[in-house]
Nucleic acid binder design. Structure first.
Lengths: 139, 139
DNA sequence: ATAACTGTAACCAGAATAGTTGCAATTTAA
DNA sequence: TTAAATTGCAACTATTCTGGTTACAGTTAT
């Protein structure tokens, strides 16, 4: 694997929940549409739950439903609820501190990373789950 | 490892080249500052060369130097020269085509991915290697 | 000629992510 | 009150990615 598909799956899952008409949906069913294992879905759902985007109920007749209206779920919230990695990684080994360039590189890159992350957040903040639903329907 | 640090290392490498005063720099020296193996550096340099950002010369007294002035090297060029991954990955397995959501998900996500990539490109386009040099010096 | 480099291919090692299995805890319903 | 259906979670496996390393061919300066 490698390459984080959490966000992609999360959008997929939330879209399914949004279309259930408020009915609780089982992880098994979701896994069928996403084409993965139910446990993978439940793991993800557990993150979305912490972020108060969905609500689950255990036991027979259990399942998960949205905790808010699609129009009130911003994609930036989804992104932040998950541990999606940064756009680029910093050096894996620390640069050489004896070199003036190496010494100051990390600080600069870290700042740049934050700026980019902010751009992404702003972009994702422009869309809600309702927008996703509309785009999916119109095909 | 995992998590692509190519971009971070590239900026580091280019900064070193920019400070060499036009002199060719050896991969061995660069590797010393970045704190990695010379081959890793040469691999990266090879990508930057394809993008016409640097020029290398083989043989004794060989090495690499910038192909343009720092003010003419935009960080977006650097980013594009490398195969940095996308911000988020699409599903690793294809979604279930029998489900209306699964069927349309990939197209939507792909579009969103492109939009985000564009934001990143625009952000990185605002900076040149000269800006990096200035930020590094002022510490 | 020889030594110093780059360019590259091939392989190894470590880490991250998704996929799986198994089971405890909870809830519904017969 | 027992059985069946579900979530929650821990632990393990499999796959894949990326960087590190080795080895060596080709090139150039001295």
């Amino acid at each position: 694997m490698a390459a984080n598909s959490q966000f992609a799956i999360a959008i997929h899952v939330l879209t399914i929940l949004a279309r259930s008409g408020g009915e609780r949906v089982k992880s098994d069913y979701i896994a069928g549409s996403v084409n993965t294992n139910p446990v993978v879905i439940r793991r993800l759902l557990s993150n979305l739950q912490e972020a108060n985007l969905v609500e689950s109920q255990v036991g027979a007749a259990g399942g998960t439903s949205l905790a808010k209206q699609p129009k009130d779920i911003r994609l930036s919230e989804v992104y932040n609820a998950l541990s999606c990695g940064e756009v680029f990684a910093l050096h894996s080994k620390e640069p050489n501190k004896d070199c003036p360039v190496g010494r100051n590189m990390a600080a600069f890159l870290c700042g740049l990373q934050k700026e980019i992350d902010k751009s992404i957040g702003e972009k994702l903040n422009q869309y809600t789950l309702r927008d996703v639903l509309e785009k999916i329907e119109e095909r």
